[in-house]
Amino acid sequence: MQEQTSTIAGAMPRSKATVEQRLAALEVQLAHITTQLDKVVAAQKPMVDFRQEMEPIMREMMDASIAHLAHLEARGYFDFAREMVYLVDRIVEDYSPEDLHQLAEQAANILDTVRALTQPSVMAVARDVAQAFEEERHPEPQGLWGAWRRIRKEKNLRRGIGFALDLLGRVGRAVSRAPRFSRAEGGKSAAPAQLTAPRAPSKHNGAPAPRSSKSPAPPEQLVFVADDAWSREYASGIAASIGMQLGDGHFKLIEFARDDYKKNGSAPNIRRITTQTGLSTSQVYELFPRAPGLTISRLAGVPKPAGCI
């Protein structure tokens, strides 16, 4: 049709075409445009609809956002953020992008080092040292002779000197090697276990107890009992434990529920039990006075009637 339009309207000289021909061409073109217009209007509709729909929602989102942001502001988040901006600003001014690049290259090493330095044993040493500074009585200045006397007397002092010498040896080795030590030497494989083990308890001690301990006991769940495990005796056994004696009337309902579950994948509701077995709801309640739907499911070895949550 489009081809025809272009032939008539385009190729044919205006003067030679009759009025009818030109009208016909126009008509074809109009029809084409109308179809296109319809499509445009149809495509537009969802957008108009979307805007109308979104207006109240946007309003609500704004209200909630404002409330949330106000809360953050009250807690000082924004003041903090502004100071952070100043901090970043200082870093940007004093350091070059190359410095940052080098820092990133060493990130894993830095983290490894931090991890090693924050192991509990190291922290204990640091804490002890820090405490020494806080003690009121600072030791008197000591001469060489005094030091010698103390070394002879105090075993811990000798151990400390041994450790310090050992440390100095390591520093020497590190200096003599290449200035950059590689990550693989950091003993990465062993480190994570050391990291998580001592830290985990302290991290969780302060955390609120999981919600499950606060909420009520989980609802009883019943699972399907396979054919080779289910029998009338199975049902009678469970019935006895809840003080019930089962007769043929009970079994008619129990076996119906079991068959129905196997057929449809869900436990029958009371209505289905009554229509399919011919008993009235009152009769069902006479047989199973308490929660018949649940009780029948339990005895039939099928999942109980449930909602979606």
Partner: peptide, 10 residues
């Protein structure tokens, strides 16, 4: 509710 709880799934 005819069910045994408001929330029946664990």
């Amino acid at each position: 509710t005819p069910l045994d709880a408001a929330f029946t799934k664990p």
